[in-house]
Amino acid sequence: MQIIISNSSKEPIYEQITSQIKSSILAGNLQEGTALPSIRQLAKDLKISVITTKRSYEELEKAGFIYSIVGKGSFVAEQNLEVIKEKKLKVIEDQLNAVIINSREIGLSLEDLQDLLNILYEE
């Protein structure tokens, strides 16, 4: 598991950890049931405080990405990837709807919008 922490980032360290573990799980790099390092081990490896890693794991647990067994440690939870994808899709739909409304306000045509999207997507 790779985690890169930036000290100059505005994002709090615990959030950097949660978001990076989340993406590893969503990208399939961390499989269901994989044991995560203990909060103390992770704190030592990243040279940060235990309280920070503890908070990251708590957030991940709340969001259902991992689960913990007392005395055994934390593991990657079963991810219903279909459900997650659906959720993401719903979010994307909402965002696109907002784009469409904004485009209509300034009279941007569908073709122009598609061109713009193409350019941005390629970047």
Binding site: S38, R40, Q41, K44, K47, I48, S49, V50, I51
Partner: peptide, 29 residues
């Protein structure tokens, strides 16, 4: 590094006074 290592099993507690705060910015809880 060493202090974090001896904290690994979770049984120990460290109380650490210093006026060099950069030492603590990172590892203190």
């Amino acid at each position: 590094d060493l202090l974090q290592e001896i904290m690994l099993d979770g049984r120990r507690t460290i109380f650490f006074s210093t006026h060099i705060t950069t030492d603590l910015d990172r590892i203190a809880d």
